[in-house]
Nucleic acid binder design. Sequence first.
DNA 1: ATGTCC
Length: 486
Amino acid sequence: MAIKEFLERISDTVWEIPVSYKEGMRVPARIYGTEKIIAELDEAVYDQVTNVATLPGITKYALCMPDGHFGYGFPIGGVAAMDVEQGGVISPGGIGFDINCGMRLLVTNLTYDEVKPHIKNIVDRLYERVPAGVGSRGFVKLSRNDFREVVEEGAQWCVRNGYGWEEDLELMEENGCLQGADSAKISDKAIDRGFNQIGTLGSGNHYLEIQVAKEENIFDPELAARLGIFMPNQVVVMFHCGSRGFGHQVATDYLQIFLKVMESKYGIKILDRELACAPFNSPEGQAYFAAMKCGINMSFANRQVILHRIREVFSDIFKKSPEKLGMHMVYDVAHNTAKLERHIIDGKERSLLVHRKGATRAFGPGMGDVPERYKDIGQPVIIGGSMETGSYLLVGVPSGDQTFFSTAHGSGRTMSRTKARKTWRGDKLLKDMESRGIYVRSTSMPGLAEEAGGAYKDIDDVIEAAELAGISKKVVRLTPIGNIKG
DNA sequence: ATGTCC
């Protein structure tokens, strides 16, 4: 029977597939999105999210956020919480190859009028100072042993070594260093791939963008001010990157290990090899958890060094210190992780491993790990749109409990990279964007074409769905004026 | 996403 006949409308923005849809589903699947988003959703997502619903220990629902699309095993936009006391598993496919891919936002006290005459210079200098593209190498010279320290200490290593400010650490999950990251669980190959990649942007949809908070796009001026956006046309900097080849190798290493032991040792049968997993409470599961934390820390360190370079470039161009330019970090979000969290399920507190793959944690007001300064307003959420359209700053809300306090992470692709390359030309797109006031530098013209705004869902639709569903609240929409694309 | 197949 066709999927549409199973799809039950729970509300204007929540759609459920019952366990009767597929043999082995332990919980229903729920997809977030407006009617328009659901109508245009790739049917493969239904298959993937219902496969996830069969995994051991899955609690309540297998979820897909409104930016969801087809991914490796799990859909991108997938959220799955596994009860670790009930045989719950950990699955690399539920985290993503790019461990702790995420977004960071920093503000300036400059207006668009002040920045406009310098925008080409800013973008050109950032392009030199923040290496981008496949295989790019960073300026931070580390030995392999130094790098093992970095992956255990995360952004704290960076601040100790002069990359950034002490206050930056308060604005990251767990102060930029996950406890329990163990480099003994990392292969030499992963170290080889990662040790010269700190401070690099990468490729694909990774980018660094100069943006403006236009007056009409500041939806809640009070909340915006609390987050550091205090005037119309204020210029901010947003960037998106992850753990580069290092995280990719960690995921690859443990997928192979899990495929070997999953069925023979643990008797877990799965519908798709890409859902390879191991019980969280098993030697293999714990080893991957400790290795993944190294990936998370590597990514925090990567973004920390990039933040430092951005401050240097602005400081050089505007002849003022980064402090005088008000270059404070707003927050850093991780959107490819699994975290052990306590959540109340049907009135009972349980210990859940929450997989968020292309999904952003969005803790509500008062919750643990929300920085002290934001405790009363909820965790900031940074959602990057396509490079042509815009991005959003939001906050978590109490009703986020329905998704284990998770929301969308971006626009979500609607077109394959191959088709996008055939539809647009990078050089023409670059000129078109410049005529619309967005100055772009990229290492690859085909790569630029892949990221055309038309290859993505409408970011405003995605954010509207997230807000209507009550999984995050929008504060500011940000408009791009300059972009460095990997 | 990714030394885009060691």
